[in-house]
Amino acid sequence: MSFDTTHSNFLDQAKISHEDWDKSGLNWENLVSIASSYIELQPTLISTAEQISSRIRTFEGVHSVRWRIKDTMHLLKKIVRKNLEEKPQEKWTTINSNNYLSCATDLIGVRALHLFKDECIIIDESIRNTWNICEPVTIYVRNGESTHSELLERGGELKVHAFGYRSIHYIIKSQPEKIELTTEIQVRTIFQEGWSEIDHRVKYPDYSDNPEIKLFLRVFNGLAGSADEMGSFVKNLTKFLSDSEQITTNAFSERQAAFEERDQAIAQIASYIEELKELRIKDRHSQTLITNMQESMNKLKESQKRTATQTLAEKYSTVSTRAKQSSEITIRAHGVNSPWEIESFSKSLDMLGKALSNGTVIGRTQKGHND
């Protein structure tokens, strides 16, 4: 597919005077050759834009992604505008169909939009980890505005834009097909995007010098910047309130836990007291039982002693009686017939029996004491 616009139609559509055209020093046939090559490359550019956009959508902090392929007329107008600068760069003065892809690095444009200003930090990290960046990252800010120090520490270059444009620009290289392509990734907030789109529609590139439009766009830019600041403030306020509520909830929970622990300790102590009371009662019963058993054992011992003594006495009484009977027979057998002799002999046996009985009992008592 070729570019079939005539030179005259191009100048009319681009609002370029013949004087500016002559001043640019460009050759119309060269521009036509660039335009024709660019039109043929459109399918590859579109496929690459979709691929990069799809990848960016997976990044943390990204709200939405937009992409565009630079319009052919806009590419040619940019080439003329760059050559009309006071000191045009060499790449623009020597541009042709073979090198235009390396000269114009924004033919593929992808915009990653985020809600809050500080989300650009994590998006910046994701871009650096995914692609090779072939030019320094440019951070455009309004006059008097600063940026996140993390971006500067990573090599970002801060530039104050005369018209209040705010965005972060990355130029990356990728090669989805045989040709190596460059893509410009722009990272900005939704409010910055809204202002930029309106600014581009009404001003770029044909009404850049209109003072009334510049004034109102500057006011609008200030409102968009205030909206960004308000969004960040609301985000931080919400986090602060949430953290405060969590702290209060944790403190209440800890207090309730302390009360429950105290109640459990009191209940445990009360349980221990009841157990001690039961043990004390059981101990008294045990002492009484031991005392009763001791008394019963003592009584049993006394009973055994009395039984033994009584039995011994009975045995000695029987022996004494038999001894008396035997002695009487023996006395009579030896001719002792005197009643007093028999009586005297019987008394002697009684005394001997008592003495033996007492001696035996005493011996048993002492033996039991020694044992």
Results as ranks from 00 to 15, higher is better:
P176D: 13
Y165R: 03
L107K: 09
L181P: 08
I168L: 04
E157S: 11
S102Y: 06
P136I: 03
V110C: 14
G156P: 07
K159D: 04
T130W: 01
R111S: 13
Y140H: 07
N129P: 14
W131M: 13
I127R: 12
R166N: 03
K159T: 04
H161R: 07
I133V: 02
N99I: 09
P136A: 02
P136C: 02
I172K: 10
F163M: 15
K178A: 12
I172P: 00
S126A: 15
P136T: 01
K159F: 04
E153Q: 03
V110E: 14
L151Q: 01
F116C: 09
K159Y: 05
S146Q: 09
C120H: 08
V137F: 05
R111I: 02
C120G: 13
G156K: 09
K117M: 12
V137P: 05
I179H: 14
C120L: 13
T183A: 05
E180D: 06
L107N: 07
A162C: 07
I171Q: 13
Y140R: 01
E153F: 15
Y140F: 09
F163K: 14
I168R: 03
R154V: 05
I172D: 00
V160L: 07
Y100K: 01
E150V: 09
V110F: 01
Y140W: 11
N132I: 08
N132Q: 07
A162G: 02
H161D: 00
I133R: 03
F163S: 14
V137R: 03
I171F: 10
L158H: 07
V110Y: 00
